[in-house]
Simulated assay, not measured.
Amino acid sequence: MRRHLITSLFALVLALPALAAGKTVSDAQGRQLVVPDSPRRIVALSELDLDAALALGIKPVGATLGRGQGGMPRYLGQASAGIAPVGQFASPVLDKVLALQPDLILAGGLPDPQLLAQLEKIAPVAISYQLGEDWQTALQRIGTLTGRSAQAQLALASYQQQATALRQRLGKAAGARVSVVRWNPQGPAYMLRDAFASRVLADVGLQRPAGQDQPGIAHSPPLSMESLQRIDGDWLFIGTLAASGPASDALAAAQQNPAFRQLAAVRQGHMAAVDGSLWTSLGGPLAARALLAELEQHLLAGNAKPRS
């Protein structure tokens, strides 16, 4: 009987999954947690987490959808193919997360203690950034959390090299006042000074129009068509989060409005319709480099045209 019990226990131990080697790290809130040295099954609960993981050579097994979208952030294209959706932005579905058997959950700036406690029953949960923190600091922390610090430094160096090169080539566009606008069904809202795109613009020496140079990481309240002059600038980049739908329809209608056509940026051919999931959301190194590439395409061409 005793020999049979020992044999059964030994078989049970062999059947258990091997425990991965771990390390103790601090997340963005200073919480201490043990994470695998090289996590293989990551779930990303924010656009920044997803972007950063992909840039570090990690394909998460799951991620929340891009805000205001029915899929992953569309600027990622095929890079996000095959990643299982686990719910809307900031609202992960616990059953979907559990089914993926993650070994690390990157929770972005998730502020809900109750949700965090539930997620911690599934896998180690790391708050990867503080709200308002720049994406470069967040990337370095995500590099530490995932055991990819060297790759994070390479990604930062690549971005900085691209930003410096563009800054040196801007020519007559140097110091231009660039307006970045998210068009909503209710109307346009401009991005504030500390938003993701605003910080990328600052890295290449571009400015925001005086009326938009306000502190904040998000965007203004929607403006009426009577206040349309507030979105004007030397250059105007307008995006919607989803490629189609009410916001896209509202933007198309606005472009036929005489007040819109009288904006200086529009009259000069300095308006471009862009991907709002890239320009008006929170991205990481992939988004930052893509945004630089679009700036170069439009500003150095000297004539930005709306995209169909």
Rank of each mutant, 00 (worst) to 15 (best):
A253Q: 10
Q214W: 00
G239Q: 01
L192C: 00
A195K: 03
R230F: 02
Q262T: 08
L170I: 06
L170V: 11
R182S: 05
G216L: 05
A189C: 03
S224W: 11
H270K: 14
S158V: 03
Q161P: 04
W235A: 02
P215D: 07
Q229H: 13
D232R: 08
L192R: 12
A202T: 10
A155N: 07
Q255G: 14
A155M: 06
L263H: 10
M191C: 02
A252I: 03
A173N: 11
R148I: 04
Q161Y: 04
I217S: 11
L251P: 03
Q168M: 14
Q212M: 10
S158A: 15
R141Y: 09
L156T: 12
A197N: 07
L145Y: 03
V200C: 08
A195E: 05
I238Y: 05
N184P: 00
A210E: 12
A210H: 01
T144A: 14
L223P: 02
I231D: 06
L228V: 06
E226M: 10
F237V: 05
F260A: 06
M271K: 00
A155S: 06
I142G: 01
V266F: 08
R199E: 15
F260Q: 02
A197F: 04
A264S: 15
P246C: 08
A254S: 13
A202E: 07
I142A: 05
Q229R: 13
A247M: 01
A197C: 07
Q160C: 01
A155L: 08
Y190W: 15
Q161G: 02
R193C: 00
Q153Y: 00
L156H: 09
P185A: 13
V274S: 02
A165M: 01
A176E: 08
L236N: 12
T144L: 15
I142E: 15
K172V: 15
G175I: 12
D234L: 07
A202H: 04
A189W: 01
G233H: 03
E226P: 07
E226C: 10
Q229K: 12
A259R: 14
V178G: 01
L192D: 01
L192Y: 00
Q151C: 05
A253W: 08
G187L: 11
A242K: 03
P221F: 01
A155Q: 14
A174R: 15
Q153M: 12
S224R: 09
A243N: 10
R193P: 00
V180S: 05
L241C: 00
Q256P: 09
S224F: 05
D213N: 14
Q229L: 15
G175W: 13
H219L: 13
Q162R: 11
P188N: 13
S227N: 15
L223I: 13
R177K: 14
R267I: 01
S220V: 11
G269W: 08
L201K: 04
M225K: 14
S227Y: 08
L145M: 04
E226K: 09
Q161V: 04
P221S: 11
G233E: 10
G205E: 07
L166S: 03
G175P: 08
D232P: 07
E226F: 01
S179R: 09
A163M: 08
V178F: 05
A176L: 09
A218H: 15
R141G: 11
Q214A: 01
P221W: 01
L154E: 14
G147K: 10
A202P: 00
V274A: 06
P188R: 10
